[in-house]
Design a protein around this nucleic acid. Structure first.
Length: 522
RNA sequence: GGCGACGUAGCCAAGUGGUAAGGCAAGGGUCUGCAAAACCCUUAUGCGGCGGUUCGAAUCCGCCCGUCGCCUCCA
């Protein structure tokens, strides 16, 4: 079955901004993928735009792990810059104290969302020696020069400057909108080290007291932990210029070789009402508010529903739609687990029968007719394969979600068609695939506790109260007191608990956020 | 002005040469104490527009229109 072999061993392909096309991921250390993603400059609360690069990295890491790779993922906090210094001073706290507040917010949100594969968070202020060493070397090699305590990188010294963003020095000079610092040799030269002004936090350096410029920290820290020529460097598309352009220039000048990284992975922006969300625009939606309204898995699905290289339009309506769509996946999983009872232990994926893979996977795209004729067992195996193929293909998470919905429809159909008490053939496999693929996307994050609990309520106490109310309701139904039963159901719904009566009994699950007006009306 | 993305149904969104996945919403039916969930059926001769290449184009090429991003702190 050579076709199957080809599909199984097909490489993982990602879009690389530098080469402008999709290219295969070929780790320079076999079996190990070294990845760095740019984290936030911490001077404000985390917003949904920050979520995208972190989530892209997280899903990529999970998928790579499933494909048998070891992933070494490093990210950073830029915890010293003009804004941080200015705002910390306004509030009368140290830059470190100020930054810590937003670092905590970022880490808290990542934890809630299950973005847990980042092995190390590097802080700029804890890597000053690495940065100084890099700047010194660049000066020694003639790529940088010092002026009155500042050190600038000389863009004309690096012949291929501009290769990432695809622009020439002439283009950029023509469009320059900022006043040119006359001390610079070239208007596009950028600061590697900035002399400290009075009262500013600073570190000693060969050029006098100062602090790192923006850009240099990511070069110094990524090379320190990942080494030359690591595999993937990710971040938001708004970082392509100047941040990543400058990173390449200074890193390759420092290394004396290239490439600095093999694949530059950039996600498109999250927009609100047609405009990019950004801290400076003030139109951002803090993540800490969203996690109180939506289950983490819902937020993940929302971001992953659009391919990472396309702009994502944020709106509350869109999020509510995702909530409904996510309910379908969660509900199917719960229903199948209920039907199967103890057949498949929770968390233990049933092995997919490989012989069934052969018969279905030979065709890249089974026709609807053929697929309908095939059993659920085969459909599950085909879905598993198609899901992986979608992620292999430049992390097509939207296509991968489509595969899961397809599987859900087939599985639900099998359950509906099965005689009472009978186990539909292949349902265990379908459940196993649904669980595992859902794990890769992180769709089940917070599914058991819901948004409110995830945001800090006591899950055990809340659940006990729900259970109690459902027992009272069950009694009411037994006495055919449906008015009482319906009243309890409505009250729970207003509180964010969805109740469903099934042949297997009453089920409940945390739905969306509590509807305060509805609660008040009860 | 320069560089780069993107434009698929009411909405969201896959699909890079072989005849339009999936989700949400809507309508009809089955099931249910009623709901919910679930299942079945219906909803793009059509992929921003106009040309071109091809046996064949949403997919390739050209021009045009529109939206967005970057060129300045930004994920």
């Amino acid at each position: 079955m050579p076709e199957l072999q080809d599909r199984t061993q097909k490489e993982i392909r990602l879009f690389d901004t530098l080469s402008g096309g999709v290219k295969p991921l070929v780790p320079s250390h076999p079996g190990l993928v070294r990845m760095y993603t740019c984290g936030p400059t911490v001077y404000n609360f985390t917003h949904i735009g920050h979520l995208r690069p972190a989530l892209v990295g997280d899903v990529l890491a999970r998928h790579l792990e499933r494909r048998g790779y070891r992933v070494l993922w490093v990210s950073n906090f830029t915890d010293i810059d003009d804004r941080i210094i200015a705002r910390a001073a306004e509030q009368g706290v140290s830059a470190t104290t100020f930054a810590d507040r937003y670092i905590a917010d970022y880490l808290h949100n990542l934890a809630l969302l299950g973005i847990d594969r980042i092995e190390r968070f590097a802080r700029v202020t804890e890597h000053i020696p690495d940065i100084l060493e890099m700047v010194s070397t660049l000066v020694e090699r003639g790529y940088a020069y010092a002026v009155e305590g500042d050190v600038y990188f000389s863009v004309t010294a690096k012949r291929d400057y501009g290769k990432l963003s695809g622009r020439s020095l002439d283009d950029m000079q023509a469009g320059a909108r900022i006043a040119v610092d006359p001390r610079k040799r070239h208007p596009m030269d950028f600061a590697l080290w900035k002399a400290a002004k009075p009262q500013e936090p600073h570190w000693e350096s060969p050029w006098g007291p100062g602090r790192p410029g923006w850009h240099i920290e990511c070069s110094a820290m990524s090379l320190r932990y990942l080494g030359d020529g690591f595999d993937i460097h990710g971040g938001g598309g708004d970082l392509i210029f100047p941040h990543h352009e400058n990173e390449i220039a200074q890193s390759e000048a420092f290394m004396g070789t290239e490439p600095f990284v093999h694949i530059w992975l950039h996600n498109a922006m999250v927009e609100v009402e047609g405009e990019k969300i950004s801290k400076s625009q003030g139109n951002f939606v803090p993540l800490r508010d969203l996690v109180r309204q939506y289950t983490p898995g819902v937020l993940r699905q929302f971001v992953l529903s659009t391919h990472y290289r396309k702009p994502l339009q944020y709106s509350d309506a869109a999020l509510r739609e995702t909530q409904r769509a996510w309910n379908r996946l969660r509900s199917a999983r719960q229903a199948w687990e209920s039907v199967l009872g103890g057949v498949v232990p929770p968390g233990e994926p049933a092995p997919v029968q490989m012989e069934t893979v052969d018969s279905v996977a030979a065709d890249a795209a089974p026709t609807p007719v053929a697929a309908a004729a095939a059993g659920l067992e085969q459909a599950a195996a085909a879905a598993d394969d198609a899901f992986r193929a979608a992620l292999d293909d430049d992390l097509n998470t939207a296509g991968a979600l489509g595969v899961l919905f397809d599987l859900v429809r087939r599985g639900n159909g099998a359950v509906a068609a099965a005689p009472a008490g009978a186990l539909p053939r292949g349902l265990a496999s379908a459940l196993s695939v649904l669980r595992r693929c859902g794990d890769t996307l992180g769709l089940w994050e917070g599914a058991g506790v819901g948004p409110v609990v995830a945001a800090g309520d006591d899950p055990a106490r809340s659940s006990a109260l729900v259970e109690l109310l459902l027992q009272v309701r069950a009694d009411a139904r037994a006495y055919r007191d449906f008015a009482m039963a319906d009243r309890i159901r409505a009250a729970l719904a207003a509180a964010g608990v969805q109740v469903e009566d099934t042949p297997q009994g009453t089920r409940w699950v945390w739905g969306g956020a509590p509807d305060a007006p509805a609660v008040a009306k009860l």
